[in-house]
């Protein structure tokens, strides 16, 4: 484990904590896309199929359990919690899951490192994670006014992606035979999706004004 990977995992973890804190303490999920959260729950469920079959490390297993539990509890909060669910912007969050899930599934069936159920599911989760943020970005674009916590949540997710790219570069140069085109390309696509958001985030931070996206 290198420093970029650890920092990437920690920012990823922080993004989830920020979101759970917002939902749990303010009892509001305003500005958060349920579609994106459901896609993330699906991403973790399909990626971590190996959780009970392949032991990598205690760290790995615990982090997987945290990501599974947190993503499903966020979905539960937004759908079931009697106060939180009232703040959900249902009419604005109209992105269709299937438009993202189907192409990712098809792509994973054709492009994968090994044609087995677990491997295809793993590849599917990589493709889906790359685009799962889209409903969230569309929602941000529509509501334009972003509260601090939502802004920090998306920022931390983007930071996590950027750090993972540094992790791959580091591993490529330090570990023999570490070549993973599928992971790299889908990871790069995912990070690029944040570029536009980052531009506005840094501008608002630099000018010390509230983050607001253009119409």
């Amino acid at each position: 484990m290198n420093i970029f990977r650890l920092a990437g995992d920690m920012t990823h973890l922080m993004s989830v904590i920020v979101l759970l804190l917002k939902i749990h303490t303010i009892k509001s999920c305003a500005g958060i896309s349920l579609k994106t959260q459901e896609l993330y729950a699906l991403v973790f469920a399909t990626r971590y199929l190996d959780i009970f079959t392949d032991f990598i490390s205690l760290y790995n297993t615990i982090m997987k359990l945290i990501f599974l539990a947190s993503s499903f509890s966020i979905v539960w909060y937004m759908r079931q919690h009697k106060i939180v669910r009232r703040s959900y912007d249902k009419d604005q969050d109209t992105f269709r899951h299937l438009f993202l899930i189907l192409p990712c599934l098809l792509l994973a069936l054709f492009i994968n490192e090994k044609f087995t159920f677990k491997e295809v599911m793993w590849t599917f989760s990589l493709f889906l994670e790359a685009v799962a943020i889209l409903p969230q970005l569309v929602l941000l674009q529509r509501t334009r006014n972003i509260d601090n916590l939502t802004g920090q949540y998306v920022f931390l997710l983007g930071a996590y992606r950027a750090l993972y790219i540094l992790n791959w570069i580091y591993r490529y140069f330090t570990e023999p035979h570490y070549v993973h085109w599928i992971t790299w390309i889908s990871g790069l696509v995912q990070t690029l999706l944040y570029a536009d958001f980052f531009y506005y985030y840094f501008n608002s931070w630099k000018n010390n004004v509230k983050l607001q996206l253009p119409a």
Binding site: R5, D9, H12, D50, D54, I56, S57, N60, M63, K64, F67, W122, Y164, N167, W168, R171, E175, P176, H177, Y178, H180, T183
Partner: peptide, 10 residues
């Protein structure tokens, strides 16, 4: 064991 793999990532 085995080759380094992106499967050990989260």
């Amino acid at each position: 064991t085995g080759q380094p793999s992106a499967h050990d990532e989260l």
